[in-house]
């Protein structure tokens, strides 16, 4: 096995084109577990932590370009206000040590159905910036997850960044697990409301072969929410939203939970996050008035 340590992105892309079997290594919190347990013996590791550009973020025209290698701890500390949904998800990842190393690029590379950033990226309409020696392309999050632990990357491609709108909307994330730290989600849910254009993004994690949007639930909510008269929401509306979210799932029974529990819990998370986001909407309305 070789250890390859490119200093620039161009160098890394050239290596990846020449050696598509080289496994990218960012924070290592997924890759190293597989190596330590002999689950994987790639021909080479392609360490991306020497490439400064991947560990930066910037904001242009209301779009955040978040480098694939920015660790969760920095997302929480530096982007808590700009990307509140992603920061909420980041706070629930593993432990402080894991958040100090783990990255969104790595979460996308692993493409686990239980990865915590995926529901947020889907609900926020993120685009994944992917590069190779052939050029750069932007993959909408909903086209990125192609199967259990599979993604839309070609063998010569690397994830360079995630682009998502700096929050003007109301963002929420919630996750069910057995304790407050160090848990892989039993199920997770992200919600983004855009009152200015009556838009809704809603997505589920850990309840289908891939993370996915709950499109019918999104359409229902966009049409039914009393956007301009933000009073308390009727229970019937919240319940229906929860049912539609549960209907978007395709869960399995596994060690972390049963399919029935996941469906039930997601309906609850959907109602709860809607209540929280709507409360924030009402608060904002008051402070503008």
């Amino acid at each position: 096995m070789d250890f390859l340590r490119p200093a620039t992105l161009d160098e890394a892309l050239a290596v990846k084109a020449e050696r598509p079997g080289a496994v990218p290594l960012a924070g290592g919190t997924d890759v190293m577990v597989e190596l330590n347990f002999d689950h994987r013996r790639p021909e080479a590791l392609l360490d991306l932590t020497g490439i400064g550009a991947l560990a930066e973020w910037s904001i242009t025209d209301g779009q955040v370009v978040l480098g694939a290698g920015v660790p969760y701890t920095r997302i929480i500390a530096e982007l808590g206000d700009t990307l509140p949904g992603l920061a909420m998800a980041a706070r629930t990842v593993g432990s402080p040590q894991i958040r100090n190393r783990g990255t969104v690029g790595g979460n996308l590379g692993a493409a686990s159905p239980a990865g915590d950033t995926h529901p947020v990226l889907l609900a926020a309409g993120a685009r994944i910036e992917v590069a190779s020696v052939r050029g750069t392309r932007l993959v909408p999050a909903e086209e990125f997850y192609t199967g259990v632990k599979r993604n839309a990357l070609d063998p010569d491609e690397l994830i360079t960044a995630v682009r998502l709108p700096a929050a003007r909307g109301l963002e929420q994330f919630a996750k069910v697990g057995t304790r407050n730290a160090m848990v892989i989600a039993v199920c997770a849910f992200a919600l983004v409301l855009h009152p200015e254009r009556a838009g809704v993004g809603a997505a589920i994690g850990s309840a289908a072969p891939t993370p996915r949007r709950a499109s019918e639930a999104e359409r229902f909510l966009a049409a039914e929410l009393p956007w301009d008269t933000p009073g308390a929401l009727p229970d019937s509306l919240k319940r229906r939203f929860g049912e539609l979210v549960a209907g978007a799932t395709e869960p399995i029974d596994d060690v972390r939970g049963s399919a029935a529990y996941r469906r039930h819990a997601l309906a609850v998370l959907a109602r709860r996050t809607l209540t929280w986001a709507w409360n924030d909407h009402q608060e904002r309305g008051k402070s503008c008035a």
């Binding site: 340590r5 290594l25 330590n36 347990f37 100090n100």
Partner: peptide, 29 residues
Amino acid sequence: CEQGECGSCTVYLDDVPVCSCLVAAGQTE
């Protein structure tokens, strides 16, 4: 545990606490 779960391998890497079992040695060059 060698899988990041127990924290008993925690060290500082450039002043940031990490699980040393999940850092490839080559990354510390």
